[in-house]
């Protein structure tokens, strides 16, 4: 019991400790190696970091509830791209021509609806067929990507609406719009997972599905709602990002699922479900973004970032295993 408390405290604090370590490391290393004159811990730099965390971060909040629930969603990158295309393309549709800037909320709504539906479709398939979520979303990752290409072939889809860009580039109390969305989503998902019956049931199902079924929790619809949530959040992430960017390539969002899952696992969510929280995930997202930015700051390129993120993920897994190591006399199987 003593040991498990220690290891738990270590685990819950680990991600923040890691972030602290990164900050110290990059600040000191930055003094000597940085190409730029600004310090790494510069306020502007940190605000930018939060903003850049948003696209992955918003999706990661959805991934947290899906993984706590005992599932996984590999299709988020493709959903992200579809939502982006719907957002940008729909603003040019002739039927909305008369709306002026009123087209913006319509386009947002359309994109969010499409994302939610695509997520729900994954959930429905998982529920009704009983096929593992890993396989279902592996399939739809391909399928949804195919749909992305069907829109416009291999060409980018672009539409710049300056009102929208202004909104996306606006700052409020120093935080960019995207940052506000990230913080808002984190807060809402924290509320959902920690405070609502739906959230608590997500833990129960991921932890002991049979017990949840025996207690009368309807597992199928529950899972579908969570998939709809992550679909919605993938679309929201796209909406926030592309309001500013204004142009989407059909390959955008590729490998997002990997970044998102990495952030969630770094944040302490158990891969088998039942444990994890969005605060940890927030830490995981920040940690990864810090690493990307920090390595860039000291002059390393993307290759080092990839290498570091991959190895850190494995190291975290290894440490977790060591902390939970069984006693010497345990069965060796």
């Amino acid at each position: 019991m003593q040991k498990s408390t220690v290891s738990k405290a270590l685990k819950s604090g680990a991600i923040w400790g890691f972030i602290l370590l990164e900050l110290i490391f990059f600040s000191i290393a930055g003094e000597h190696l940085s190409l730029s004159d600004t310090a790494f811990m510069d306020g502007e730099n940190m605000l930018l970091l939060l903003k850049q965390s948003a696209p992955i971060g918003i999706i990661a909040m959805g991934m947290t509830i899906v993984m706590v629930n005992g599932n996984i969603d590999l299709s988020v990158g493709a959903t992200f791209a579809i939502a982006a295309i719907v957002l940008l393309d729909s603003m040019t549709w002739p039927i909305f021509a008369g709306l002026g800037d009123g087209v913006i909320p319509v386009a947002w709504l359309l994109a969010l609806t499409v994302g939610t539906l695509l997520g729900a479709l994954n959930g429905l398939i998982v529920w009704k067929t009983g096929v593992d979520a890993f396989i279902v979303t592996l399939g739809s990752m391909l399928g949804y990507r195919g749909i992305v290409f069907m829109f416009n072939g291999e060409n980018p889809t672009s539409h710049l609406n300056w009102t929208l860009v202004d909104f996306a580039e606006a700052e409020f109390l120093g935080f960019a719009t995207a940052t506000w969305f990230l913080l808002g989503v984190t807060l809402v998902m924290w509320f959902v997972m920690a405070r609502t019956v739906h959230g608590r049931n997500a833990y129960a199902i991921g932890d002991n599905r049979e017990a949840a079924v025996n207690a009368g929790i309807r597992v199928g619809p529950h899972m579908m709602i969570n998939f709809a949530i992550i679909g919605f959040l993938a679309a929201l992430s796209a909406v926030v990002f592309y309001s500013e960017a204004g142009s989407v390539n059909p390959n955008d969002g590729q490998l997002y699922e990997l970044w998102v899952i990495t952030a969630v696992v770094l944040g302490g969510t158990k891969i088998t479900g039942g444990a994890g929280n969005v605060i940890g995930t927030f830490g995981g997202v920040i940690a990864i973004q810090l690493l990307r930015k920090g390595l860039g700051h000291i002059g390393a390129d993307t290759s080092t970032v990839n290498l570091a993120v991959g190895l850190i993920l494995i190291a975290v897994l290894f440490l977790d295993k060591q902390l939970n190591l069984k006693g010497k006399e345990e069965l060796k199987v």
């Binding site: 290759s303 080092t304 970032v305 990839n306 993120v309 991959g310 993920l313």
Partner: peptide, 17 residues
């Protein structure tokens, strides 16, 4: 799953390096 996910990224970085 996690190990090979990490290795996906790490090996990619290795290749680029």
């Amino acid at each position: 799953l996690i190990v090979t996910l990490g290795m996906l990224s790490a090996i990619h970085g290795l290749t680029l390096t």
